[in-house]
Amino acid sequence: MRVMLQGEAYPDPYLELLRVGVEHREVAEAVVVTLVMDGVLVTGTVISASAWEDLYFRQVGEADYYGLRKVVREVIGHLDQAAEDGRRRRAPDPRFLHLKDVTVRSGRTARRLPAWRGPIAAVSGWSLGEPDER
């Protein structure tokens, strides 16, 4: 409820409720949203920041961007060790929304992405679900 009352701190309190709910595991994992950002439609399943981070590290590690595979493995090792020691990862950044199994539509073009991270403040409109393919 506090999120709903804070006004300008959160551009859209209802979208923020989805983000917070996923971070606290109170929202079902299969919440699909379609976002409008600069005239582009972004559709995907809302995930937590830590789930997105895991996907990100996996992608970077598998592709070996600029020789980062070794660095990524070290970072993952430190994160895993911290989790085993009972320490939390840093708090999720509330400015960003994270999606998986994403489709980005611009005009007649649609592209699939495994994961996506974008600023909530850039969302000009959104809806639960995905658009009809017709």
Rank of each mutant, 00 (worst) to 15 (best):
36 V>M: 12
117 R>E: 02
37 M>I: 13
81 Q>W: 10
46 V>K: 08
95 R>W: 09
84 E>C: 06
96 F>T: 02
54 D>H: 13
112 R>F: 14
106 S>M: 15
104 V>R: 09
46 V>P: 07
107 G>I: 10
105 R>T: 15
66 Y>F: 13
69 R>I: 01
63 A>D: 15
58 R>W: 01
114 P>A: 07
82 A>Y: 11
94 P>H: 05
40 V>Q: 07
98 H>M: 09
101 D>S: 15
80 D>Q: 13
74 E>I: 01
88 R>T: 06
77 G>F: 01
112 R>N: 11
72 V>F: 09
66 Y>K: 11
99 L>I: 12
113 L>H: 15
63 A>P: 10
71 V>D: 06
89 R>T: 08
115 A>R: 12
39 G>N: 02
48 S>W: 03
68 L>R: 14
90 R>I: 02
87 R>G: 01
43 T>I: 03
111 R>Q: 11
100 K>I: 06
42 V>G: 03
116 W>C: 06
44 G>R: 04
39 G>D: 06
36 V>C: 09
50 S>D: 11
36 V>T: 13
110 A>G: 07
78 H>Y: 14
93 D>L: 03
36 V>Y: 06
103 T>V: 15
46 V>G: 01
103 T>R: 13
57 F>W: 15
49 A>W: 12
103 T>L: 10
70 K>I: 05
69 R>K: 15
65 Y>E: 05
72 V>E: 01
53 E>G: 10
72 V>P: 02
58 R>P: 04
45 T>M: 06
85 D>C: 10
55 L>A: 13
50 S>Y: 03
52 W>V: 00
76 I>P: 00
109 T>R: 04
57 F>N: 08
54 D>A: 14
52 W>L: 01
101 D>H: 14
89 R>Y: 04
97 L>K: 07
88 R>P: 07
40 V>F: 12
100 K>T: 14
75 V>R: 02
78 H>Q: 03
94 P>Q: 04
86 G>Y: 15
36 V>H: 07
38 D>A: 08
71 V>I: 05
82 A>Q: 15
94 P>C: 03
84 E>T: 15
72 V>C: 00
58 R>L: 07
97 L>F: 12
53 E>I: 08
36 V>I: 11
55 L>M: 14
103 T>W: 10
